[in-house]
Amino acid sequence: MNALLSLTATLLFSLLLVHLVNRREQRRREIRWRQRRARAQIEGLEEVLIGLEETLSDRRIAERINREIQHQLEAALALENGRNTHLETRLNHVKERAEELENNRRQARANRLRESDAQLARTRECLDQAARVLRRQHNQGRLERETLDEFLRELSWSRLMVEVVTYVAEGHKSLQRGDITSALAYYKKAQGLLIASDHPNPHRMEIIRELGDMIQGKRKALSPELMPETDYNP
């Protein structure tokens, strides 16, 4: 009887031990998965930040994305057992970048002109991803509604103008090749995007009018104030 009780106790202890080992291993796997996921998100956010820096002259949205990168890095560090000098170095760099963004909130010039469909698609994705991050920050109580709405309007206007500027530039390129038909088609396509939009930016109607003048041959390019990307202006 004693032997049976001892055997039963041993079996129960073994089962408990196996259960504890399995739980610990499962926990380790979960932590590794969360770490990989956090690192992937950080890399994606870095790409978004680069896209914003290329496209927007107002760097306040880039500030918010940089804060998200800092938030993700701090979360990744919290999952580490002991120190991780690589993540700590990245975190310090992000904090230094935050100071630089705060001290220089406007760039001398942003460039919305893209040279290929792939570049155009990448920029649209960066702007869309930035909007998703801002909405998430608002839902988590880290961004005021009024500021969110302002930033979303800025992103949607930039998304629209990246396409408009690129099509106008393609029209200029066609004009330089002597292909007037293609040039007019690009100008009309750019104008059509603006007409189809209901964005409240006051420059929208100005650009529509000036594109109309270009289509009618009354002017060669948009005003530099509306389109400072003059690389291909005739």
Rank of each mutant, 00 (worst) to 15 (best):
D198R: 14
S158G: 00
F13P: 04
N92D: 00
R219Y: 11
L49A: 00
S57L: 15
W33E: 15
V18H: 08
V165H: 01
R114E: 08
E25I: 15
G212D: 10
W33Y: 15
L120M: 08
L152D: 01
L155G: 07
L52C: 08
P228F: 12
L7A: 01
L184F: 14
S174K: 09
N84A: 10
M227I: 08
F151H: 14
A9E: 11
K188E: 09
A98L: 13
E46P: 00
I208G: 01
N2E: 12
N201R: 13
T8M: 02
L5T: 04
M1V: 08
L127E: 03
I65G: 07
T230W: 15
R29H: 07
R90S: 12
I215Q: 02
D128H: 05
W33F: 14
G44R: 03
S6E: 12
S197Y: 14
T10V: 06
A131P: 00
V133C: 10
A62Y: 03
T89K: 15
A190C: 02
G212A: 01
Q41M: 02
N22H: 12
K173E: 15
L211K: 13
P224C: 05
R153A: 15
L175I: 08
M205L: 03
D149P: 05
E25T: 12
I31V: 12
M227N: 13
